[in-house]
């Protein structure tokens, strides 16, 4: 028993150590702009193309549900224009970033882990090193940067779409007029709502891509190993997003 706890602890410390090493390597690779600059653009496009459709799809339906649930909850005791408040705040602060983040973990995180995992087990990573490239600046930095930069943009668009479908639902299904909806939307709006959501999204994008890269590059054991890495990347980044979400709420929203 104690033995097992001991081993677990050692394992955890090793994992944290590897993570730290990885971060240090990444920072060290940052000045190498000539290597990662062009690749980062490629990755940014990929992150955008991969995640935008899913994120917008999810946001569109979330907007509808939020509006309906709000009106259902208020049952006449709260003025109906608060539907606008609830849709706007919830999309910006929580559901936009988190739902898109979870979707992104499944799309982008998984595909990065699979890609780098395959490169690892087929010795492409070794080959890069023998050509005197640094896998950190060639593979990792462009991906992490792309995730961190692109994800807030994806989330911003998702939030807009969600608010729009919420508004259309209010208009057509709840008989709430546009001015009323907008009034609700603006009532408690603070600029912090926007930057909090976007900042949070950037940290999610960073986390998802970093986890995808770390897990991908530590893949062992052929096609099976790649499969394991892919699921692992999704699970780890999903958990990380939820924990991080609670963390930012506790730190920044109190």
């Amino acid at each position: 028993m104690i033995d097992r706890i001991g081993r677990r602890t050692v394992g955890l410390i090793q994992a944290v150590g590897r993570w730290g090493q990885f971060m240090a390597d990444m920072v060290r690779a940052l000045p190498d702009v000539t290597t990662w600059g062009r690749l980062a653009l490629v990755q940014m496009r990929r992150v955008g193309v991969d995640s935008l459709p899913v994120a917008l799809f999810i946001a569109a339906f979330t907007g509808v549900v939020l509006a309906l649930q709000a009106s259902y909850t208020f049952t006449g005791t709260v003025p109906l224009y608060f539907v606008g408040t609830l849709v706007g705040k919830t999309m910006m602060l929580e559901l936009g970033p988190v739902l898109a983040g979870l979707a992104l973990a499944g799309r982008v995180g998984a595909s990065m882990a699979a890609e780098l995992g395959t490169m690892k087990v087929t010795e492409q990573v070794d080959a890069l090193e023998t050509l005197a490239y640094d896998p950190q600046s060639f593979l990792v930095v462009p991906r992490v940067l792309a995730g961190t930069v692109m994800f807030p943009i994806v989330v911003a668009l998702a939030v807009l779409v969600g608010i729009m479908t919420g508004w259309m639902t209010s208009l057509w299904l709840l008989n709430l007029s546009t001015p009323e909806f907008v009034k609700g939307l603006r009532q408690f709006y603070q600029f912090k709502d926007t930057w909090f959501g976007l900042f949070k999204s950037a940290t999610f994008g960073f986390t998802i891509t970093t986890v995808g890269c770390v897990v991908g590059l530590s893949t062992r054991g052929g096609a099976e190993g790649v499969g394991r890495s892919t699921t692992r990347a999704v699970v780890y980044s999903a958990v990380a997003i939820l924990v991080l979400d609670a963390f930012w709420a506790a730190v920044l929203l109190r």
């Binding site: 087929t122 010795e123 492409q124 080959a127 023998t130 005197a132 640094d134």
Partner: peptide
């Protein structure tokens, strides 16, 4: 890295970069 620039390595299973063309592989 300086040492690696002096050495060409032919991998057992080629280890080509799948996402690149043949010419880009050689050029990298």
């Amino acid at each position: 890295n300086a040492l690696r620039r002096e050495i060409g390595y032919v991998f057992q299973f080629a280890a080509l970069f799948d996402s690149l063309t043949v010419a880009e592989n050689v050029a990298l």
